[in-house]
């Protein structure tokens, strides 16, 4: 840009800069997002060693109800041990609230199949027919 100062023409250099004042705000915003959404997973309470599989599918978190069955065959729903007979009414109530519910069965790999069979029978009774057998990814080479 040129400006006239008397007889001389002086070139004024304009400095362009990226404003960095809001950088801290952005950083803290992202930080708060990560701090609030991060789940520091501490698996305590129920010792369940999940089986491994390869041809799995990712399950939508918002539609999942979990059932845990430990190696001794004890089922657990909502952090409480329940009897097999209680599975159907609990799941039926959950299904009334969300008909698209998927029941994720987190069973220990050492559990005898007879316990799994009992749990599946209760799920059928509650019409909870959409089931997912939760697994861990298979270790390479196994």
């Amino acid at each position: 840009m040129r400006r006239r100062y008397g007889r001389f023409q002086r070139t004024v250099m304009r400095r362009y800069r990226i404003p960095t004042e809001s950088m801290a705000d952005i950083a803290f915003l992202l930080l708060i997002f990560y701090m609030t959404t991060a789940i520091l997973r501490v698996e305590a309470g129920l010792d369940v060693d999940l089986p491994r599989a390869q041809n799995t599918m990712r399950q939508p978190q918002e539609q999942i109800a979990h059932i845990w069955i430990d190696a001794q065959g004890r089922p657990m729903i909502n952090d409480f041990y329940v009897s097999y007979e209680e599975i159907a009414p609990i799941l039926a109530a959950k299904l009334r609230a969300n008909p698209q519910l998927i029941v994720a069965v987190n069973t220990d790999k050492r559990t005898r199949y007879t316990f799994m069979h009992r749990a599946l029978a209760e799920m059928k009774k509650a019409e909870a027919v959409r089931v997912s057998f939760t697994t861990l990814p298979r270790a390479p080479g196994s």
Partner: peptide
């Protein structure tokens, strides 16, 4: 951060 992602073998059971 590890975003909790569930993997499983899906199956549709027959209704009782």
């Amino acid at each position: 951060t590890v975003f909790a992602v569930e993997h499983g073998l899906p199956l549709v059971l027959p209704s009782a």
